[in-house]
Design a protein around this nucleic acid. Structure first.
Length: 890
RNA sequence: GCGGGCGUGGCGUAAUGGUAGCCGCAACGGACUUAAAAUCCGUUGGGAGAAAUCCCGUGAGGGUUCGAGUCCCUCCGCCCGCACCA
């Protein structure tokens, strides 16, 4: 029987045994439980990682996305922080003045959920979690500057957020407007999208309603163009993230224009219907108009149309999530009014309220051209509306061209031409757009308009555990900001969660205040900020975490921008976009002058794990899964288990592995090593017990190799190295060069493969026994290199090894070595020789040999002669020092 | 639905458009041991062959190229984001 987690107890009981071989060479096992706390204390006592501004040295700011204090760290954190730590330690060794801070994204809903479910105060819950997680992170041996630790729920942090919000208000970056929220009518509370499940509130089960609420917005759309354009400059960001942000901002060039409306009898109605489109070229294919259920016309008509009102209720029960809205079947309800086609006299388009038209985009109204839009055609087929193709590939017969259930979308650069479109016939899409725009502008019914998909950032949350909005509502003075001298507006602590809704809204002494302007009775704003605000500037606060302004200018000038930012792809859009905006807003209000906070971004993959299920479908913790004869069983109930998919570690699927027990058992170095090995960092990594054990065995192997090497002499007077010694030297220096390169480009998995290679070469040299003085010297040199190159990944083991090798300074104070260039270059290269693209032989040649010389040598090869037998050489391709390809025929 | 990504041996993976499979895991064989563990050495994509060697092979199909895992198109599968989760 093999038990998954927990069996490292075995090794620990073995951990103190010594090996007493006949040759009296005794090596104690490396004991991480002893070494790791010891070195952590050393680093801490000597303030090794506390950053101090020093303009005489180049700085390097490495930051991992700070964690939400959920209570325990998970493997995703281990992976994230291990990566950041490798970079921090590597850059440090390379001579940079490194800033590597840590903090807590400490406001948010889970704290309130804990309060509701278990009666713990959110503050107590949060700070206890922080304490627990701080301890766990410290046990990882991260080179963090803990003296700069911040928590966003601390008034010393959020007071600056409040001050900046007031400055943003004064700078015109804040707006108060009405927007839609998910309302739970039973719990009397606003729900997050994730709390709406199948249109129902997660706790109450009540049908969710959409409700209009006055909310605070930050005007991120003021920067739409700039946020888009500046993406081009972010060359060290992954292209996919830049693309996602581009699409999110969604700049489009189109037209806004108005239809004249008429009733069923053909009588013109007052008011016009304004739509936005990017496909004005398809106007002759229009067969209906559709407006959002939240459009003012929908509201107006539903007053005396009960069916329409019912339809709107149905749609609003879907909630506010764009995903659910767009996934829903396309449905609509005819208003009974019509839009007059601007170019087709007498043609009228029925106006529908439709569930797929979004109020937040464009005008909340569209014209539908089913032939060339997938959503429109689904709608048209459902309601029997005409489908008129108006764009077709060039040369296609207009009369015969038909569109089925799939819209015809002309691709960029296609040669599509307009058909069935009167004066547009024969034009390209671009020309047709131009023509329509010109005509509509001349007719005075519309204008060209650049539109963005990006919406303003709604920052109001009707919740307790967040930063209070520093505003007071006064019946006479209206909205008054809290004077800066009275900041911070702190959260009251005497709150309970037994009543539905926001505790701030029914806290009389906190809520009721005097107006700072007129002194009359007034009330505090009871909304708190979106926690994305907290995380939109924490990177800047780390520069001067104790300053009495949000950001100390001098410190920011030195440390900003973040040179390397690391976190999950799930933040590719919102957090990163909000941070980019916030930096600009802070620039406008003179708090910081650095528009792009993250010079280089790396998005790491998730940690995934096998899942286990019982016959009744319950998820089982991997720790409870036991394998006997290839079949898995539950350790306690003995039920047979089936292996589910390999999925992101999550509590609900119970496929979590607790880092604390892994670190306690195998040690932090092993956990770090495994998280960095095998998978490339941007890809998902699967946690496997076998892999962790492999990593653990490798730490022991390194320890053994270093111990054996430390017994070798280090005679510095070697005049000449023999071939065996030279070969090991080459391997060592090549490894050093390769690891330097791999770490610089964050390819940790490759660096680890190279460390394995060097340890294999060293192991082989040591296994041969009694090395001659030249080899002995090289073994010591190679061992030093080995330790220094794995040090960023396994810092505790490295320190321990370094002492063993007789060094007096710790690794942490030892500079990164430089490879000897003569040892990493070769004067001979092995070249593959292909015939018609297939490898037939290979040849060793001096580097840089001329093409005709290569040809002569290659034609003598047996394999080539054989392959070319009876054939003529048509072409001879030589890629210098890489490959030869002979094209033959006949 | 829209947007983005990924897909290579039994498994995790490596490979500036240039010898597909470095390195690791697992498995198997061997050494050491009374034995086991640990450790060390070796083998390991599929097929044919005594061997030399040959054929096939990077999710499927097509294309560009002297040459494609890599670039382009279509399809399939899986994953991430979608504005109040963080």
């Amino acid at each position: 029987m093999r038990k998954l987690a927990g069996h490292f107890k075995d090794w620990y009981s073995r951990g103190t045994t010594t090996f007493e071989g006949p040759d009296a060479l005794t090596t104690e096992r490396y004991n991480s439980r002893d070494a790791e706390p010891r070195w952590q204390k050393y680093w801490s006592d000597n303030h090794c990682f506390e950053a101090v501004e020093d303009t005489s040295r180049p700085k390097y700011y490495v930051l991992e996305m700070f964690p939400y204090p959920s209570g325990r760290i998970h493997m995703g954190h281990v992976r994230n922080y291990a990566m950041g730590d490798v970079i921090a330690r590597f850059k440090r060794a390379c001579g940079f003045n490194v800033l590597h801070p840590m903090g807590w994204d400490a406001f948010g809903m889970p704290a309130e959920n804990a309060a509701i479910e278990r009666g713990v105060h959110p503050k107590t819950w949060t700070y206890e979690n922080i304490a627990a997680m701080r301890g766990q992170l410290k046990s990882m041996g991260l080179s963090l500057d803990w003296s700069r630790e911040i928590a966003t729920c601390d008034p010393s942090y959020y007071r600056h957020e409040q001050a900046m919000f007031i400055d943003f208000m004064n700078a015109g970056l804040v707006e108060r407007k009405v927007s839609l929220v998910n309302w739970d009518p039973v719990d009397q509370t606003v729900l997050a999208n994730e709390q709406v499940i199948d249109g129902k509130g997660w706790r109450s089960g009540a049908i969710v309603e959409k409700r209009e609420l006055a909310q605070w917005f930050l005007k991120i759309t003021d920067y739409s163009e700039d946020l888009l354009k500046a993406l081009d400059r972010l060359e060290k960001w992954p292209e996919k993230v830049r693309l996602m942000q581009r699409n999110w901002i969604g700049r489009s060039e189109g037209m806004r224009f108005s239809f004249v409306l008429e009733d069923a009898g053909g009588r013109e109605l007052p008011g016009k219907l304004t739509v936005y489109t990017t496909r004005h070229d398809t106007i002759f294919g229009a067969s209906f108009c559709a407006i959002s259920v939240d459009h003012e016309l929908s509201t107006e008509y539903s007053a005396h149309d009960e069916k329409l009102a019912a339809f709107r209720r149905e749609v609003s029960a879907l909630g506010t999530s764009e995903e659910t809205i767009e996934r829903a079947e396309k449905k609509g309800h005819a208003l009974g009014i019509y839009a007059r086609h601007p170019f087709k006299p007498g043609v009228k388009l029925p106006v529908y309220t439709a569930n797929f038209v979004l109020i937040g985009y464009g005008e909340g109204a569209i014209f539908g051209c089913p032939a060339h839009d997938q959503r429109d055609i689904e709608f048209a087929r459902k309601y029997g509306l005409p489908v008129i193709p108006v764009v077709a590939p060039q040369g296609v017969d207009a009369a015969a061209f038909e569109v089925g259930d799939e819209a015809y979308l002309d691709k960029d650069g296609s040669d599509a031409r307009l058909i069935n479109s009167d004066f547009l016939n024969g034009m390209s899409v671009a020309d047709a757009k131009e023509e329509i725009a010109t005509r509509m502008e001349a007719m005075g019914i519309g204008e060209r308009k650049v539109n963005f998909r990006l919406r303003d950032w709604g920052v109001s949350r009707q919740r307790y555990w967040g930063c209070p909005v520093p505003v007071i509502h006064c019946p006479s003075c209206k909205i008054v900001t809290v004077p800066k001298s009275q900041l911070p507006v702190t959260l009251p602590e005497d709150v309970t969660f037994d009543k539905p809704g926001n505790p701030l809204a029914h806290h009389p002494t906190w809520k009721n205040v005097k107006c700072p302007q007129c002194g009359g009775d007034a009330t505090r704003e009871t909304d708190t900020f979106d926690t994305f605000i907290d995380s939109s500037w924490y990177y800047a606060r780390f520069c001067s975490p104790k300053a009495d302004v949000p950001v100390d200018a001098e410190a920011a000038r030195y440390w900003m921008p973040v040179d390397q930012y690391i976190g999950g792809v799930e933040h590719a859009i919102l957090h990163l976009l909000y941070s980019r905006f916030f930096a600009r807003a802070m620039g406008k209000t003179d708090h910081m002058h650095w528009d792009e906070p993250f010079a280089s971004l790396f998005t790491q993959g998730m940690v995934v794990h096998e899942t286990f299920k019982t016959p009744s479908g319950d998820w089982v913790f991997p720790a409870d899964a036991v394998q006997t004869d290839g079949q898995w069983f539950h350790a306690k109930t003995n039920e047979p288990l089936t292996i589910g998919g390999i999925e992101k570690m999550s509590k609900s699927k119970r496929n979590v592995v607790d880092p604390e027990s892994i670190i306690a058992g195998y040690g932090a170095d092993t956990a770090r090593w495994f998280m960095l090995s095998d998978s490339p960092p941007e890809r998902d990594i699967e946690w496997t017990e076998a892999g962790a054990e492999g990593a653990w065995r490798f730490t022991q192997r390194l320890w053994r190799i270093v111990n054996d090497a430390s017994a070798c002499g280090r005679d510095g007077s070697i005049a000449e190295f023999g071939p065996v010694a030279m070969e090991l030297r080459r391997v060592a220096h090549r490894t050093l060069a390769a690891v330097t390169d791999d770490l610089s480009s964050l390819r940790f998995n490759r660096a680890i493969a190279r460390v394995h290679e060097l340890s294999n070469a060293l192991g082989a040299a040591l296994a041969a026994g009694s090395p001659a003085p030249d080899l002995s010297f090289v073994i010591r040199e190679a061992a030093d290199i080995l330790v220094l190159v794995f040090a960023p990944m396994m810092p505790h083991l490295a320190e321990e090894c370094w002492v063993k090798l007789g060094h007096r300074q710790p690794v942490v104070e030892t500079p990164w070595p430089t490879p000897i260039s003569a040892l990493i270059t070769d004067d001979e290269v092995t070249i593959a020789v292909q015939v018609n693209g297939k490898r037939r032989d290979e040849i060793k040649l001096p580097k840089g040999l001329a093409k005709d010389q290569v040809e002569i040598a290659v034609m003598k090869l047996e394999g080539i002669k054989r392959a070319l037998e009876g054939k003529s050489v048509m072409k001879f391709i030589v890629v210098p020092d890489r490959i030869v390809n002979i094209v033959s025929g006949g």
